[in-house]
């Protein structure tokens, strides 16, 4: 058996529906049609009445999920694209994220955001907006980079008693394959060392993990051994694993597909310099997308986001410093 990242997401939802009668899925075109990306393919047929089409109302979709969660359900909301979740932003950050703190009543909702760039998708179907959600207290923000994590972390997201922003990368949907679904997994909140190395630590997440791994392979041919840390969860952030890696390598490069102002890469550097300044042999660096909307044309898009080449180049500069 071999399955893709997207199929893993579909399987996780099927298992959640099968194992927990409190789970339902609500989103645009998720019912009989199976979703814009087919992440809910056949689920409406297999679980009648539990996979439901919503009107194009991101605000009301999330509001409904919060009400259902108060009533003891575990809704999964599919945003057709992460970019459109900004229309439901208010309900996510002001309603879902504040409920537990204000009232002691948990808000177990999972909001799935198909996010990140793919060639030709342009400014409104490519955005990486994990950092704005991570900024708000009351939310868990997950960014799986592997098929196994997509499956296990989505199941864990649904089981958690808190609102989870589940950022699933569209670039990984079809490319990434695994032989089987995992039977156990690292828990949410723990980063993974995707590749061990002694010369430099690259901290990254989601699709950029694969760019970093490719860069590491390239640099290995030049005699450098790069350690790649996959954050898996950007909130909470596993600072300990990152600092321990920097303690081994002395050099830090943070890579993110999102925009450069603030965000996850800046947060990592802030934490590492605050906790482990003395561990650093060189100023920590970060590599992000350019500070423009995400371009449509493949030539522009490939230059807009970090790639294995630009990661390798940034790493070389840091290694030689």
């Amino acid at each position: 058996m071999s399955l893709t990242y997207l199929e893993a997401i579909r399987e996780a939802q099927a298992h959640a529906l099968r194992d927990d009668p409190r789970v339902f899925i609500y989103g645009q075109d998720v019912g009989a049609f199976g979703g814009a990306f087919k992440a809910t393919k056949n689920l409406a047929q297999e679980y009648p009445g539990r996979v439901l089409d919503s009107p194009i109302s991101e605000d009301a979709m999330v509001g409904l999920a919060v009400g259902a969660a108060i009533e003891g359900m575990r809704p999964i909301i599919e945003m057709q694209f992460a970019d459109f979740s900004t229309v439901g932003f208010n309900q996510i950050v002001n309603q879902a994220a504040t409920l537990f703190w204000r009232t002691n009543v948990p808000c177990p909702i999972t909001v799935r955001l198909p996010f990140g760039g793919t060639s030709g998708s342009g400014p409104f179907h490519s955005q990486c907006i994990e950092a704005i959600y991570a900024h708000y207290p009351g939310l868990i923000v997950l960014t799986p980079a592997t098929v196994e994590d997509a499956y296990a972390m989505l199941l864990e997201a649904v089981a958690l008693d808190d609102p989870v922003i589940f950022c699933e990368h569209k670039f990984l949907y079809y490319h990434l394959k695994a032989d089987e679904l995992p039977s156990e997994a690292l828990p949410v909140g723990k980063a993974r060392i995707s590749r061990e190395g002694r010369d430099l630590t690259v901290v990254t997440y989601s699709a950029m993990v694969h760019e970093a791994l490719e860069a590491a392979r390239e640099l290995s041919g030049e005699g450098w051994e790069i350690e790649v840390v996959d954050l898996r969860s950007v909130k909470p952030l596993d600072t300990d694993t990152v600092v321990a890696s920097v303690a081994r390598t002395g050099k830090l490069l943070c890579v993110g597909e999102s925009w450069p102002w603030g965000g996850v890469t800046a947060e990592i550097i802030s934490r590492v310099t605050g906790e482990g300044f003395g561990l650093l042999d060189a100023p920590p660096q970060r590599l992000n997308a350019k500070d423009t909307p995400v371009p449509y044309h493949p030539n522009l898009w490939a230059a807009h986001r970090p790639t294995a080449r630009s990661v390798a180049s940034a790493a070389r500069n840091l290694l030689r410093s």
Binding site: D59, V66, G67, N94
Partner: peptide, 28 residues
């Protein structure tokens, strides 16, 4: 909330769909 008495957020209009959600879950 556990008694059906929902605590408003300030953002106007935002509570209506939450009521919808409770009613939706009840029907479910």
């Amino acid at each position: 909330p556990q008694e059906g008495y929902l605590p408003m957020v300030s953002h106007l209009g935002a509570m209506i769909s939450v009521v919808n959600g409770v009613l939706f879950a009840r029907r479910y």
